[in-house]
């Protein structure tokens, strides 16, 4: 059995957009390798290309050039539907602004990724309760998102991202909408998850947050700056 050296390899990846008639390069050229179990912070100013990089890593945004290999899988060689299966199996995404489904309760939001897995209701319930305990929201399982504070919503978003036990967790500005105390709690939670073996890639513009990651990648004008 061949064990991949790196969990994620980004090779010569570039992404161009057409802005009217002008070709804009969001990512000029990037080569990044991320090992299994790493906690990587991607830092850069607004418009630097860090969120584009995250969406490419998540199999959500086809790069203009280059390859993204995850666990020996060249994800942009897959069809759109195969890539959806890949996301379901490999990736958990924590969106900026939480992005919970407003008409589903906390528990239903957490169970959302399991709706397409074919897991039995009992198993789903156990897994949902397990992550609810992990994020400390077991007593708010039946609340709707708009009945929660920002920090609680962020924790629901994290719970939803990890419920299927994906090997990779992508977090887009997970503390961007939170006060410093709540942000600290969220970072602690992410560190805890990383300790448990989860590979975490976190995008942020806040250098303070990157202090908590094992490695920080700086992005500027669509290129790695250090």
């Amino acid at each position: 059995m061949i064990i991949p050296q790196n969990l994620i390899e980004i090779k010569d990846v570039g992404k161009d957009y057409l802005d009217g008639d002008t070709l804009v390069s969001a990512i000029a050229k990037m080569d990044i390798s991320i090992d299994d179990g790493e906690f990587v912070g991607i830092m850069g100013q607004s418009g630097s290309g860090k969120s584009t990089l995250l969406s490419i890593l998540g199999g959500l945004n086809q790069p203009t050039r280059g390859r993204v290999v995850v666990d020996t899988l060249d994800i942009y060689e897959l069809s759109s539907e195969q890539r959806a299966d890949f996301r379901s199996e490999y990736i958990g995404i924590i969106f900026q602004s939480f992005q919970l489904i407003p008409y589903l309760t906390v528990k239903e939001n957490i169970k959302l990724p399991m709706a397409i897995t074919g897991l039995k209701a009992k198993t789903q319930e156990e897994m949902a309760l397990n992550v609810l305990n992990k994020v400390g929201l077991e007593n708010k399982a039946n609340r709707l998102p708009d009945q929660l504070s920002g920090g609680e919503q962020e924790r629901v978003a994290i719970a939803r991202a990890i419920v299927n036990n994906p090997p990779i967790l992508l977090a887009d500005e997970p503390t961007g909408n939170l006060d410093s105390k709540t942000a600290g709690e969220v970072i602690s939670l992410l560190k805890q998850l990383n300790k448990e073996g989860q590979t975490i890639i976190m995008v942020t513009h806040n250098p303070e947050m990157c202090r908590h990651s094992g490695r920080t990648i700086h992005v500027k004008d669509g290129r790695l700056s250090s």
Binding site: L60, E81, S88, I91, I93, P113, I116
Partner: peptide, 12 residues
């Protein structure tokens, strides 16, 4: 977008 991002297929 959220459904698709968390792995829902077009058919779902």
């Amino acid at each position: 977008g959220i459904f698709r991002a968390i792995g829902f297929r077009q058919g779902h």
